[in-house]
């Protein structure tokens, strides 16, 4: 005798549940988390180092570095820049998942952090499917990758909050049609915030840094008002 059992369960639900726990942990500690996704070599670590340099006197930053191989090259650079970094070695896995971040969180002194930046594994496909629980998802594209990437890897551009186009110093040397690129991105994610910058020359970095700083301040103000409300209710 056979029968149908209704399941109706999202296949990513286990990951999404852990992501929600991570989010709650970050919220509880007043830490804004951002997840940086990109293909290998697009400039994730470069953007993080530039961001640290710009914000280190104003915000307390911490970085989680996801790498498939047990090399701490990126984490070492962050530490050399004077920040705390935790390395997650995914053991060959091509993306971070919520559980990997959950395991890394206790290694960070979240009480002493304002902004947590997660550098995901260099990959334009997998990370899109695995939420981590961070507040913002950011993709970094770069000029040498070509202007057709939104059309070929649509999923990574959807469900993100900000997009950085890095290495604009190379525009004179590469056929990269920014309008074509932008049109694809807009089709996928019309409300996205778009930054163009160069980690080499520093051009355009300020807009990104100011945006990020404003997000942290808004988040903290919101948290403060919530705490305030809480204290009020429990007085």
């Amino acid at each position: 005798m056979s029968k149908i059992v209704h399941v109706v369960e999202d296949i990513m639900s286990a990951n999404d549940d852990v992501a929600a726990q991570n989010r709650a942990k970050l919220n509880g500690a007043g830490v804004l988390g951002i997840n940086i996704m990109a293909s290998p070599g697009s400039g994730k670590t470069s953007v993080i180092l530039r961001t640290i340099a710009a914000l280190k006197d104003e915000l307390r930053l911490s970085v989680v570095e996801g790498d498939t191989a047990p090399v701490s090259i990126d984490a070492d650079k962050v530490i050399a820049a004077g920040m705390t970094a935790v390395q997650i070695n995914t053991g060959g896995n091509c993306h971070l998942d919520a559980n990997m971040l959950r395991q890394a969180l206790p290694e960070l002194l979240l009480g002493q952090v304002d902004l947590l930046i997660v550098e995901n594994v260099g990959n334009l496909i997998c990370p899109a499917g695995f939420k981590l629980g961070t507040h913002f998802n950011v993709v970094i594209a770069s000029v040498p990758e070509g202007d057709d990437k939104p059309y070929k890897y649509p999923n990574i551009y959807r469900g993100i909050d900000a997009l950085i186009l890095n290495k604009i110093d190379l525009l004179p040397y590469i056929d990269f049609d920014i309008d074509y690129f932008k049109r694809g991105v807009q089709l996928l994610n019309p409300n996205l915030i778009f930054f163009t910058l160069s980690c080499k020359t520093g051009e355009g970095l300020d807009a990104w840094v100011q945006w990020l700083k404003a997000r942290v301040r808004a988040f903290q103000a919101h948290e403060d008002s919530r705490l305030h409300e809480w204290a009020h209710h429990h007085a």
């Binding site: 149908i4 059992v5 209704h6 109706v8 999202d10 959807r158 019309p190």
Partner: peptide, 18 residues
Amino acid sequence: ARAQVIQGEEFRLESIEV
């Protein structure tokens, strides 16, 4: 070019037959 996805993101196990 401003469009919103209204269908196509589904990813679930609907039912099983046992």
